[in-house]
């Protein structure tokens, strides 16, 4: 299979970043990409943490898939848990925590109603995991894959340290925010990768996202993953669908045309993106039937392996 973009992307250098933020338009496959990135890192011998932000639910397939990689751990973070964890760390007493925060409503209200704090807490958790050490003082996680919310919210989250520092001039929050900001903006340690699909609106949004990151944020921007690229490479390209295998009916010609125009439309979007952007891209082919289909895991995994250049186990 010919997957364009591969020769240009060096995945080892991508995984040299400890924190990999994944975002993109809603519904393009951020979670799926996060999981495959984790797999690719684990196959390189890395200890990996996948960190899902504000997810309402999980697909049982994900656990089944990741269960085969003992080096991958997974957490679901939401602000309520982060808040509790952070406060416990600061207060060092469960009793005190429940005295203050469970019997008393004000801080909960602040937590809910001041969303800037919510987002900061999520980043704070990522920072905490990134600086964790093992008993032997080595890094607890070689890679942290952060499965972020979609475009608008992701920008808000990445922008939060800046805003917080505009508001808080002193105090622990300000000091810790500076540390978080330094981690995010360190081009050696953190990178943001985007995922999109080859459709007009999604590509448009991706271009806007990229220019926003370039103009307003200081985080390093990695490759763009174009997910669900319909390759249908076996559908003939010529104007006459009859040619390769004899005559086909009108119905089947229309059927084939549906897929052909989908494929050609996607190709057009990708070409246009390439013309207007210098970002490296990596295409991930569309696999029909997604996760309920038992053949799915095998099929997509094989394709992902081709993409990530992972040597097959003997």
């Amino acid at each position: 299979m010919n997957i364009t973009g591969i020769p240009k992307i060096n995945f080892d250098s991508l995984f040299s970043h400890q924190v990999i933020f994944v975002s993109g338009k809603g519904g393009t496959g951020k979670t799926t990409l996060s999981i495959f990135l984790a797999q690719a890192a684990a196959q390189r011998g890395k200890k990996v943490l996948v960190c899902h932000m504000n997810r309402l639910s999980t697909d049982p397939w994900e656990d089944k898939f990741l269960g085969r990689y003992p080096k991958i751990s997974r957490i679901f973070i939401d602000s309520a848990h982060c808040f509790r964890e952070y406060m416990l760390m600061k207060l060092k007493s469960e009793k005190l925590y429940s005295l203050i925060f469970e019997n008393f409503s004000a801080p909960n209200v602040i937590r809910n109603a001041a969303p800037a704090l919510k987002e900061l807490l999520l980043l704070g958790k990522v920072y905490y995991e990134a600086t964790r050490r093992t008993m032997l003082f080595t890094q607890r996680w070689d890679n942290i894959i952060v499965d972020m919310p979609s475009t608008g919210n992701a920008i808000a989250i990445l922008n939060i340290p800046e805003i917080v520092l505009n508001i808080f001039s002193a105090g622990i929050i300000a000091w810790e925010t500076i540390k978080i900001k330094n981690l995010i903006n360190d081009h050696k340690r953190s990178v943001l990768v985007l995922v999109t699909i080859p459709e007009y609106m999604a590509m448009q949004e991706t271009r806007n996202f990229i220019s926003h990151v370039n103009d307003k944020l200081k985080i390093s921007l990695g490759p763009v993953f174009i997910n669900r690229v319909p390759s249908y490479e076996w559908v003939p390209s010529g104007p006459d669908l009859n040619s390769p295998g004899g005559l086909i009916s009108h119905e089947l010609r229309q059927f084939a045309d549906f897929y052909r125009s989908r494929r050609d439309g996607a190709r057009e979007q990708i070409n246009e993106f390439n013309q207007r952007s210098d970002k490296l891209i990596c295409e991930i082919p569309l696999v029909s039937g997604a996760s309920l289909n038992p053949e799915f895991t095998g099929a997509i995994e094989q394709r992902m392996n081709e993409i990530f250049f992972v040597k097959k186990k003997p």
Binding site: S169, A170, G171
Partner: peptide
Amino acid sequence: KIFNRLTGSYF
């Protein structure tokens, strides 16, 4: 008091 410590008293 804790919030003061966290956020700086100006905040």
